[in-house]
Amino acid sequence: MARFSPLQWPVFRQVRTGDVFGRGPAVQSAHTKALTPRTVTADRVVQSVCPFCAVGCGQKVYVKDERVVQIEGDPDSPISRGRLCPKGSSSEQLVNNPLRQTKIRYRAPYATDWQDLDLHTAVDMIADRFIEARRNGWQDHDADGRQLRRTLGIASLGGATLDNEENYLIKKLFTAAGAIQIENQARI
């Protein structure tokens, strides 16, 4: 390793190169100059929409070896014009987090351990419970005989990681099922 010279200090480099305010290459270290952005090494760029709220900010997703390496705002998006909020900027972590659950986990009542379920079993369990809760909580008429046709046995709390279309379909599904307690995390 080469011996460090005081002439390489940023202040001396600023004076020597004429970069008096330290806003140019005088304040860059050799390590910083050698860095390349992850976006340069990407195999392809895919346009997407931020999954967190209903705004629909455009994103550019940089993919290398079929793995997301960076997500940035899309400057061509008429909605966000290349800007992302802190949640949108962290979308890459949503995809690549090593703690992300990729299997369906179920813990039976009073059980202490989780078990993995296949998709069909989990969907059947959810559908059976949904139908039973709707049936048990159904209100056809109120005390005065007015027609209600609703259920208080089911409710929906949508997540902010769903896009507009998914939230729209969830709202339609729960409304058609008779639910009146429908809310979204993004609004709370």
Rank of each mutant, 00 (worst) to 15 (best):
residue 7 L to D: 07
residue 7 L to G: 00
residue 8 Q to G: 00
residue 10 P to N: 12
residue 10 P to D: 11
residue 14 Q to P: 07
residue 15 V to I: 15
residue 17 T to P: 03
residue 17 T to S: 14
residue 19 D to T: 10
residue 21 F to T: 08
residue 21 F to G: 03
residue 23 R to C: 05
residue 27 V to G: 07
residue 28 Q to V: 10
residue 28 Q to K: 12
residue 29 S to Y: 10
residue 31 H to Y: 15
residue 31 H to C: 10
residue 32 T to P: 03
residue 32 T to W: 15
residue 35 L to G: 03
residue 35 L to C: 08
residue 37 P to T: 14
residue 37 P to N: 14
residue 40 V to G: 09
residue 43 D to H: 10
residue 46 V to P: 06
residue 48 S to D: 13
residue 54 A to N: 14
residue 54 A to P: 10
residue 56 G to Q: 08
residue 58 G to Q: 04
residue 59 Q to E: 15
residue 66 E to M: 03
residue 68 V to P: 04
residue 72 E to S: 01
residue 73 G to I: 04
residue 77 S to Y: 13
residue 78 P to H: 07
residue 82 G to N: 10
residue 85 C to L: 09
residue 87 K to W: 11
residue 88 G to F: 10
residue 89 S to D: 13
residue 97 N to Y: 02
residue 97 N to C: 04
residue 98 P to Q: 09
residue 98 P to F: 02
residue 102 T to R: 15
residue 105 R to L: 14
residue 107 R to Y: 07
residue 108 A to G: 10
residue 109 P to W: 00
residue 113 D to K: 12
residue 118 D to V: 02
residue 119 L to S: 05
residue 122 A to Q: 00
residue 128 D to W: 01
residue 129 R to D: 15
residue 130 F to G: 06
residue 136 N to M: 07
residue 136 N to V: 05
residue 137 G to F: 01
residue 137 G to L: 03
residue 138 W to G: 01
residue 138 W to T: 02
residue 139 Q to G: 00
residue 144 D to H: 11
residue 145 G to Y: 05
residue 146 R to M: 09
residue 149 R to P: 02
residue 151 T to Q: 03
residue 162 L to A: 05
residue 164 N to Q: 06
residue 167 N to Y: 01
residue 168 Y to F: 03
residue 170 I to Q: 09
residue 173 L to A: 15
residue 176 A to S: 09
residue 176 A to V: 11
residue 183 E to V: 09
residue 185 Q to S: 03
